[in-house]
Design a protein around this nucleic acid. Structure first.
Lengths: 187, 187, 187, 187
DNA sequence: TATGAATGAGACTTCATTCAT
DNA sequence: AATGAATGAAGTCTCATTCAT
């Protein structure tokens, strides 16, 4: 019933994957303001090829960031089931800050709304992300390890703050993340 | 000790001050990516005049941000003497986040290292800023209201995080700033 | 006499016809500046297929326009035999302007030499077209309804003017075509 | 009371004039689709200079075409007073077609609405142009040399047609302009 | 043969910086 | 010193044409 999108030809799929991979790395290393031409150059393709797969720069952002966010959502859900639900939220925020944030500048920018508005560009992913955060938050609150007056958008705001802190000083972040997160615990 | 800088002619000084003032407001409102031409236009001078006083855009950033940082340093010292030293650090961070941060986009960007690297661009101001932060921190630690294992760079990192949180969601920041700061208190 | 062109395979012939048909409609509706990719898409074939049958965009123009011109030539000859020869020229110019011109932007452009030079691109068709026009003109002149000092190229130029007038203001053209054509009658 | 637009600096005025002059010639010779870079190159300035004086391509069109149209309006008014009012309209259309049209492809395109919509881009000039045409038409109709059922838009449409005819075949136009215009006379 | 992916030369536009007036 | 005009290197995106599959 959905449109049958025929699979990409092998070479095209390879190129698309290559562009996406290069875009991942480049955005991660240098942020979202890298020129498309630079990405094309690093991928060893013409600029037109990038534009064939991703008609605007925002489409490329979307593809990269959406993939990342889905990975993050998966990570969150995995923690929900695998780890102690009480600690899952803390685990998640710690991992987002110290693992993902430390290696992906583009992702941090996207989450902070710099260069792309995730809510507008991919509302579904945003929604799923918030839903997942909600589950983590609820579990933590029910276990009594997080204050009851904290909302999901609050957690997102905290995350943005943690990532900014991490970008600014990775070393300090390693020690401070838990300090900040402690603020979320009931007194 | 210092180079002999002949004093500016009166009109030149006036122009410099005017440019700086306009740059303050403009960077505060629109961030650091505003074109120089726009600043010149709003200041009612030619672009060349801006470049005479500030040979590169970064020099203008530096001047604006340095001035801001000096203001902030003053604010910190004032709190140290005027307020209860125990609360001065919390007061300061709250004010930086909710008052300055909320009205000065350029400053937030600068503190977060977007567009300019404060440590490299104006080491002296950075140093004084850190010194002031150190006094606030020491007072708070001596009063026993802040954990002993927190360093000055840690406080700066916290500040950057708070401002990013504020930029992202002003509403949440109003409630969460104290929550985050609570994390700094001894358990 | 002619080069031995092996007949197209059935499916190739079908594709060629399909492309041509889509190109007709598309050029008619949107003019000659439509991208080839768009035509390929609408025809349901790959761009390469278009280029196999028409090695350059101009070749496609040529094919479309030549076909149109052959249709027009047929129309002229039909009028010569079916209608009163004296009125056939006027009928023809009226029909070209108000019927063909009004529905075929690409044809108007082609006749006016925008995007393609018919005389250079398809001399044979041009020649036949002129021959047909000559017959219409001669008949009209012999009937005494057109000035004797008007040549075939003159009639073509008049036609181009009429079509431009029609493109510019269809409403005015409906009233003015006969006014302009009146100029051709002997005083 | 009106904004005081300070006069351009001498060198800027020279450059602006040079760009405009080159644009005149280039548009006249090659039509309105010439790249801005090409105009800059021929004028011996950087592309940025063209954009300083004419922020968009349409602004440059406007400047060139508006100047031309004002010239034309002047020509029309001159004919109204200098020549026999009865013949002024015919003189004007003849001149537009055989003198201006023959040397200015860009103007013909503009009048026909190709590349720029004069009515939208410079409504005042359009209005003045139509007003002037109206005066010419009224004078001719009062003198009894033009049919009473012809309107100002009709005259404009005729003009577009004549210019297209001229573009297509200058030689024929020389003989046919009067033939076409004869159609406007009462029978 | 058909496909549609890849190419790469531009097109328009912006803006930090330099320089003639 | 001040002015604001000029420069030219990007940056985003389009499209006729070629070519691997």
């Amino acid at each position: 019933m959905t449109e049958t999108e025929r699979p990409l030809r092998a070479d095209a799929a390879r190129n698309r994957a290559r562009v996406l991979e290069v875009a991942y790395d480049t955005f991660a290393a240098d942020g979202l303001s890298v020129p498309i031409d630079e990405i094309a150059r690093r991928a060893g393709v013409g600029a037109g090829t990038v534009y064939r797969h991703f008609p605007t720069k925002e489409d490329l952002f979307r593809a990269v960031v959406e993939d990342r966010i889905r990975g993050i959502i998966g990570e969150g859900r995995r923690l929900l089931t695998a780890a102690d639900p009480a600690d899952a939220l803390f685990e998640f925020l710690r991992s987002m800050t110290l693992t993902w944030g430390a290696t992906d500048r583009g992702l941090s920018e996207a989450l902070a709304g710099v260069g792309i508005d995730v809510g507008k560009a991919m509302p579904e992913a945003e929604e799923e992300f918030f839903a997942m955060l909600g589950e983590l938050l609820r579990a933590a609150q029910q276990a009594g390890v997080v204050r009851g007056d904290v909302s999901v958008p609050d957690v997102k705001a905290i995350l943005v703050g943690l990532q900014a802190m991490q970008s600014y000083n990775d070393d300090a972040a390693k020690r401070l993340t838990d300090v900040v997160l402690d603020g979320l615990r009931p007194r």
